[in-house]
Structure formats: structure tokens, C-alpha cells
Amino acid sequence: RRPMNAFMVWAKDERKRLAQQNPDLHNAELSKMLGKSWKALTLAEKRPFVEEAERLRVQHMQDHPNYK
């Protein structure tokens, strides 16, 4: 499986939080909310998630050198 990108790293915990706050929302609505929230973040706010995604990408390359 591919490593998570920055959005997916961020959305993993954010989706849980949103789902707890909005138990009646379907996954499609949660995804739309997550997309809008991600776009609203500044580059500085996204940076930790971008860095974690890069760390995961490098780790994935080391763990699976033949993955394409």
C-alpha cells in the first residue's frame, strides 16, 4: 500500500474528531468538510503533516525498495 500523503496524515485524526462531533454525517459529507478545512490551512499549519508524509515516503522506500 502507498504511504499516506500530507492530507491523509492530517485527515486520519481530524476525521475521527469530526465524526465524533457530527455522528449523523455520512462519510461523503465528512470528506467534503475535511477538504475545505485542509484548503483553509496555511502552509505553516500544513508543514508538520507534509514533513510526516515525507518521512513515511522515505520509510516506505526503505521498506519496499521494489515498490513502483
Rank of each mutant, 00 (worst) to 15 (best):
K39T: 03
D13F: 04
D13V: 07
A40Q: 11
D63H: 05
W38M: 09
L18C: 06
S31K: 12
K36D: 10
A6D: 01
M33N: 00
D24N: 10
R2Y: 10
Q59L: 12
S37H: 10
V9Q: 06
Q20P: 00
T42M: 03
R17K: 14
L43C: 14
N66H: 07
W10C: 01
L41F: 05
K39V: 02
A44L: 08
N66W: 08
E45R: 01
D24H: 10
P48D: 02
E54N: 12
A19C: 05
W10A: 01
E29Q: 09
N66L: 10
K36Q: 14
K46Y: 00
H26Y: 02
L30E: 11
A53D: 03
D24I: 06
Y67S: 11
A53I: 00
Q21M: 04
P48R: 05
G35N: 11
R55K: 08
H64V: 14
A28I: 12
P23K: 06
K36E: 10
P65N: 11
D63S: 13
G35W: 11
T42F: 00
L34Q: 01
E45L: 04
K12L: 11
M33R: 11
H60T: 15
N5M: 02
P3F: 12
E29L: 00
M8T: 14
A40R: 10
L25P: 01
T42P: 14
Q20V: 09
P65W: 10
D13P: 08
K12N: 10
F49H: 07
L34F: 00
P65T: 09
W10I: 00
R17V: 06
E14K: 06
R1Q: 08
W10G: 01
R2N: 14
V9L: 14
Q21I: 12
L56A: 06
A53R: 04
S37F: 05
D24M: 10
N27W: 09
M33A: 10
P3T: 13
W38C: 03
A19N: 05
V50R: 07
Q59A: 14
R2M: 05
N22V: 06
W10D: 03
K12V: 07
N66E: 14
D63G: 10
L25M: 06
A6T: 02
A53Y: 06
M8W: 11
M33T: 06
R2S: 10
H26L: 12
V58N: 15
A28D: 10
P3H: 12
N22M: 09
P23C: 05
L18F: 02
L41Q: 00
L30F: 03
R17W: 02
Q59G: 09
H26G: 14
Q59W: 03
P48L: 06
E14Q: 00
L30D: 05
R47A: 14
P65I: 11
Q21T: 05
E54I: 07
N27T: 07
R15E: 05
N22S: 09
A44H: 10
E52F: 05
M8I: 05
Q21W: 03
V50T: 10
M8F: 00
A19M: 13
Q21C: 10
F7H: 04
L25G: 05
N27L: 11
F7A: 01
H64E: 13
E54M: 03
A6L: 01
K46S: 01
L34A: 01
Q59I: 14
L56V: 07
V9Y: 03
R2D: 13
M8N: 14
M33D: 05
Q59D: 11
R47N: 03
K46P: 07
Q21R: 10
Y67L: 10
L41I: 03
M8V: 09
R47Q: 12
D63I: 05
E45V: 04
R17L: 05
F49L: 03
Q59C: 04
E45A: 04
S37M: 04
V9N: 05
L56N: 06
R17P: 00
R2H: 06
F7I: 03
E52D: 04
M4W: 05
A44T: 10
E14A: 08
D13R: 05
S31C: 08
F7G: 01
K32V: 11
S37P: 00
N5T: 13
H26Q: 13
E14S: 02
P65H: 12
P65F: 11
H60V: 12
K32R: 08
L43G: 06
Q62Y: 12
G35A: 13
E45C: 05
A19W: 09
L56W: 06
Y67F: 05
H26A: 13
R15S: 07
W38E: 05
R17M: 07
H64S: 14
N5A: 05
F49M: 01
M61A: 14
A19Q: 14
A53K: 03
A19S: 12
R17T: 03
A6V: 01
R15L: 05
D13K: 02
N22H: 15
A19I: 08
P65E: 14
A6C: 00
A44P: 08
W10P: 03
M61D: 14
N66F: 06
A19Y: 10
M4K: 08
H60N: 11
F49G: 02
P65R: 14
L18Q: 00
E29H: 06
L56F: 06
A40E: 10
R47W: 04
F7L: 00
K12G: 10
A53C: 08
P48V: 06
F49P: 03
K32N: 11
W10S: 02
K12H: 07
L34W: 00
L30Y: 10
R17I: 04
Y67C: 12
K39R: 15
W10L: 00
R47G: 04
R57V: 07
R15I: 07
Q59F: 06
E45M: 13
A40I: 07
N27K: 10
R17G: 03
Q62L: 12
L18A: 03
V50D: 08
E14Y: 02
Q59E: 06
N22R: 11
M61S: 14
R1F: 09
N22L: 10
A6H: 04
G35Y: 14
N66G: 14
R55G: 05
P3Y: 09
R47D: 03
E54Q: 11
R17F: 06
N5I: 02
K39D: 08
P23H: 03
F7P: 01
M61V: 09
G35H: 10
R55T: 08
H64R: 14
E52T: 07
D13H: 08
Q59M: 10
P3R: 11
L30K: 04
K12R: 10
R1M: 13
T42S: 14
N22W: 09
Q59V: 09
Q21E: 13
L43T: 12
N22C: 07
P65C: 10
Q62N: 15
D24E: 15
D63P: 08
M8C: 12
N27C: 03
V50P: 00
F49Y: 14
S31P: 00
W38L: 02
Q21P: 01
L30A: 00
D63E: 13
P65L: 12
N5D: 15
H26S: 15
P65V: 13
Q59P: 07
L18D: 03
E45I: 00
S31Q: 09
A6S: 07
R47M: 10
D63R: 07
A6F: 01
G35Q: 15
L34M: 10
M61W: 04
N5F: 02
F7K: 03
A40T: 11
Q21L: 11
P23Q: 07
N22T: 05
L18V: 07
Q62I: 09
V50W: 07
L25C: 11
R1A: 11
L56T: 05
D24T: 13
K12E: 13
Q21H: 10
E45S: 03
L18K: 02
S31R: 10
R55M: 06
K12W: 00
D13W: 01
H26N: 15
N5L: 00
P23G: 04
M61E: 15
L25E: 02
E54F: 04
Y67R: 13
V9I: 13
N66R: 13
R15D: 00
R2P: 08
L34T: 03
R57P: 03
M4T: 11
K32P: 02
M4P: 06
R1L: 11
D13G: 09
M4F: 07
A40N: 13
H60Q: 14
N22D: 06
E14D: 01
R17S: 06
A19L: 15
R15M: 08
N66A: 15
A28E: 14
P23W: 00
Q20F: 06
A53H: 02
Q21Y: 10
R57G: 13
E54P: 01
V58I: 14
W38P: 02
R57Y: 07
Q62C: 06
L56E: 03
K36G: 08
R55W: 03
H64Y: 15
D63W: 06
L41R: 01
N66Y: 06
M8G: 14
A6W: 01
H64L: 13
R1V: 12
H60G: 14
M4R: 08
W10H: 04
Q20S: 15
D63F: 07
P65A: 12
N27I: 04
R55E: 06
K32W: 12
R55P: 02
K46H: 01
A28N: 15
